[in-house]
Simulated assay, not measured.
Amino acid sequence: MNITEPIFGSMNYSEYIPGHLPLIISIPHGGQLFPPEIPDRKKSHPSVVKSNDLNTQDIGRELADKIMVHFKGKRPYLVINNLGRSKIDVNRSIKEGVEGKDSITLVAWNDYHNFIKTAIKDVETSFGHGLLIDIHGHSHPEHFIEIGYTLSAETLSYSTSQINENPEIYSGSSIQALYNRKSNSIQFTDLIYGKTTSLGGRLQSYGYDTIPSHIHKHPLKDEKYFRGGYCVQIYGSRYAEHVIDAIQIELPRTLRIGNNEKRSNFILTLSESIAWFLREYYG
């Protein structure tokens, strides 16, 4: 096993573990530190959420360990926010994620994003392209695994031909670079919900209801769906100059809370699915 010592940001509020694969795992909303000297965020923005995505940090760490097994001890890069979401939200712009002008949380926000940028630069230099996986948790009643490529629920509801024939759709996704590399051999919809060609299809084939996938191509009317937040939007390859793709994975409470055996079995499946996706498309 390749053991890499973690690097910590100011006050240990953020953590970075360098890796050896073209894969970065980021965990923004699982922090367990709630220092009293940092004031809680206020609802100064309409969409402010202050509750943690429970167990996502434990899941992300275990996921990284399991992925190492698939690659003979080579590990993904890992970027972790250790502050609770009531104190900071690193998956928002600094204006929305940090309350007021408190210097401690400003530093913590910048540390987290500088670690992501460092990992991206290293992956670009070492591999030429790569993938960022952003781990989240949701409480939607449908209990789907939601995979976000920065495509809206409405866009996913278009027909396969409408999606494949509209370049604005793939160029607006966070996996544009991947599609550009593979467009001679695969259609864009194959990458987002193909049964044997997409991450969602892989998870669905293991029996985990996933959107988008070949079974659930898009959310139905009134079903909630997270398409991918700040980090996936700014670091993914929807910007043509970016060579790192980004995918947001939203895990339902049923896979995060309660049954430890069920959670561990799922992490094994997720690690295998991501390892397959990495080998298939990032070489």
Rank of each mutant, 00 (worst) to 15 (best):
P18N: 11
P18M: 11
G19H: 09
H20V: 00
L21H: 05
L21V: 00
P22Y: 05
P22S: 09
I24R: 05
I24G: 11
I25C: 01
I25L: 12
S26Y: 00
S26L: 07
S26K: 08
I27A: 04
H29S: 12
H29N: 14
H29K: 03
G30S: 05
G30D: 02
G30R: 04
Q32Y: 07
L33C: 03
L33V: 04
P35W: 06
P35K: 03
P35A: 02
P35C: 01
P36H: 04
P36W: 00
E37L: 08
E37F: 12
E37G: 13
I38G: 04
D40A: 06
D40P: 00
R41W: 02
R41F: 01
K42W: 07
K43I: 05
S44D: 12
S44I: 13
H45F: 13
H45V: 14
P46M: 09
S47L: 14
S47F: 11
S47I: 00
V48L: 12
K50Q: 13
S51I: 08
N52D: 09
N52G: 05
D53E: 14
D53L: 04
D53W: 02
L54D: 12
T56L: 07
T56C: 04
T56K: 08
T56H: 11
Q57D: 08
D58F: 09
D58M: 09
G60D: 01
R61G: 01
E62S: 15
E62G: 03
E62Q: 14
A64C: 15
A64W: 00
D65E: 14
D65A: 14
K66R: 15
K66H: 09
K66F: 11
K66A: 09
V69I: 15
H70K: 14
F71N: 08
F71I: 06
G73Y: 11
G73E: 08
G73T: 04
K74Q: 15
K74H: 13
R75N: 10
R75V: 10
P76N: 07
Y77L: 04
V79F: 03
V79A: 02
I80N: 04
N81C: 15
N82Q: 11
N82P: 00
L83H: 10
L83K: 09
G84N: 07
G84F: 05
R85E: 05
